[in-house]
């Protein structure tokens, strides 16, 4: 099995792999489930099982399975990254793109109510398409605006979905 990504720079950091991060998340979440439901009150009479039984079961199992998972990763086991037609499995992870996509999306969430759907959605589309490698800026911008306006018209005017009007409220 070839290990193209994160080809260990030899020596001390070899035991650390990004997959270990995900593996550690599982038992950590298990602990969170157990701790997070400790304070759920069971004041009301409940015959049989109360509201804390199932969380304990799930949290406990997650800790157990998570530890096995961590052990597996430490011993060198690795999952098979999902193959996809648009994905070059052998390429190293491009964290910059992931960060940019995340940034664009979270910015969209932040400005949605202020700017309204049309503007925010157009920016979202433009931003994502650009990050993902769209080449013609102008064409991308055009498509973005068409997407923003047409979805708004279709869903708000056609179906009565509530989407924020924002700056353009009253104009459209």
């Amino acid at each position: 099995m070839s290990a193209p990504d994160e080809a260990a720079p030899a020596g001390k950091r070899r035991w650390w792999r990004p997959e270990l991060g995900l593996a550690l998340v599982v038992p950590a979440l298990g602990v969170l489930v157990v701790l997070g439901t400790l304070d759920v009150s069971t004041a009301a009479s409940q015959l049989g099982l109360g509201p804390r039984f199932f969380p304990m079961l799930v949290g406990g199992s997650m800790i157990l399975v998570g530890l096995f998972y961590v052990a597996d990763v430490l011993r060198g086991g690795r999952g098979d990254p999902e193959e996809s037609e648009d994905v070059d499995v052998d390429a190293p992870s491009d964290w910059r793109s992931v960060g940019l996509v995340s940034g664009v999306f979270l910015a969209f969430v932040a400005v949605l109510d202020v700017l309204g759907w049309i503007i925010a959605a157009s920016l979202l589309f433009f931003g994502l398409a650009t990050v993902l490698g769209a080449e013609h800026r102008l064409r991308t911008a055009g498509i973005a605006v068409v997407m923003g306006v047409s979805t708004y018209l279709l869903f708000v005017k056609g179906l009565g979905v509530t989407l924020p009007g924002g700056l353009l409220r009253g104009v459209i």
Binding site: V89, D94, V98, V101, L132
Partner: peptide
């Protein structure tokens, strides 16, 4: 899927 594609876009 979108994030995954972004991470390893086939150039």
């Amino acid at each position: 899927e979108a994030l995954y594609v972004a991470s390893r876009l086939r150039h």
